[in-house]
Amino acid sequence: MASAAHTRPLGEIEIRVKALESLLVEKGLVDPAAVDALIDTYEHKVGPHNGARVVARAWVDAPYKQRLLNDGTAAIAELGYSGLQGEDLVVVENTPEVHNVLVCTLCSCYPWPTLGLPPVWYKSAPYRSRVVVDPRSVLQEFGLQLPASAEVRVWDSTSEVRYLVLPERPAGTAHLTEEQLAALVTRDAMIGVAKVAA
């Protein structure tokens, strides 16, 4: 299955990649330094810590939260996050009554500026097939048991709009600073498959 294919040794694939890149470099179409810079950016700079800062700011700053829910793209850009695969960002708020969870059933669309690159499970056939039809059991497998009274909203990213979940602020965090709050926020909570724990 797809998940196993991610870890098996892939000598043939490595050869295909090297062949492709070397031909494109020789033809003057690709500068390997650009490839290196992009890898470095998404491996070390862009990631869920960006989204966590957005969430923490929304938790401590009510006017910011309002701006974030009204116009996610602009409010997220206020903190310096924008660009590729986040040209149009929409933030959806989790409450005790409403739980939002994100998926892309057709490919693996994901808000890169706030969350970085998606984890393998998010791109996998099991998640993409099941979360739209049986969200509660998928969430349960992630350890998230929702009350029957809660409404579940599954957002299937079919267009170029990208979504981000604003998780609930956990109880008992009134004394924490914005930075300490950001450290609590996980990638999974911003996809909507987890809650933030204090």
């Binding site: 470099v25 003057g28 179409l29 690709v30 500068d31 330094a33 650009a34 290196d36 810079a37 992009l38 950016t41 924008s82 660009g83 590729l84 695969q85 986040g86 040209e87 149009d88 267009s159 170029e160």
Partner: peptide, 20 residues
């Protein structure tokens, strides 16, 4: 012809909107 590292990072920041 090939974009430089600097241009690539500029393109990341600018994005490629599908808005018309």
């Amino acid at each position: 012809m090939a974009i430089t590292a600097e241009q690539a990072l500029g393109a990341v920041a600018a994005g490629a909107s599908a808005r018309v």
